[in-house]
């Protein structure tokens, strides 16, 4: 241990403010970066989840999506999306 007491560690013979500002900025910025990355991921997933039923119905007939007997579900969705696009 290079310091005798906790207050000596905080004070660091006058250099404390500089050292602790740097470490504060380090953890703050990296934390913000990590938080923002998680936030972005959530946003992408949420947008995808909200949009997915619509896209499914739009491409229902042509694409490879929904081959597995979801026809009735899709039909309802597609009429729904049509009215939505008209309004």
């Amino acid at each position: 241990m290079a310091f005798e007491s906790f207050s000596a560690l905080v004070y660091m013979e006058g250099h404390g403010p500089y050292v602790w500002t740097c470490y504060g900025a380090f953890f703050l910025l990296l934390g913000l970066l990590a938080w923002y990355s998680v936030f972005e991921r959530r946003q992408v997933v949420r947008a995808q989840r909200d949009q997915q039923p619509l896209q499914t119905s739009r491409q229902g007939d042509s694409s490879d999506w929904g081959r597995s007997g979801e026809a009735s579900f899709q039909r309802i969705q597609s009429s729904h999306s049509e009215t939505a696009s008209k309004s």
Partner: peptide
């Protein structure tokens, strides 16, 4: 921060080097 010895020239401010 806690255990490394102090630098004889720059004192404790050198601890910024670790980040």
């Amino acid at each position: 921060l806690l255990f490394a010895p102090q630098d004889y020239l720059q004192g404790n401010s050198y601890r910024i080097i670790f980040i």
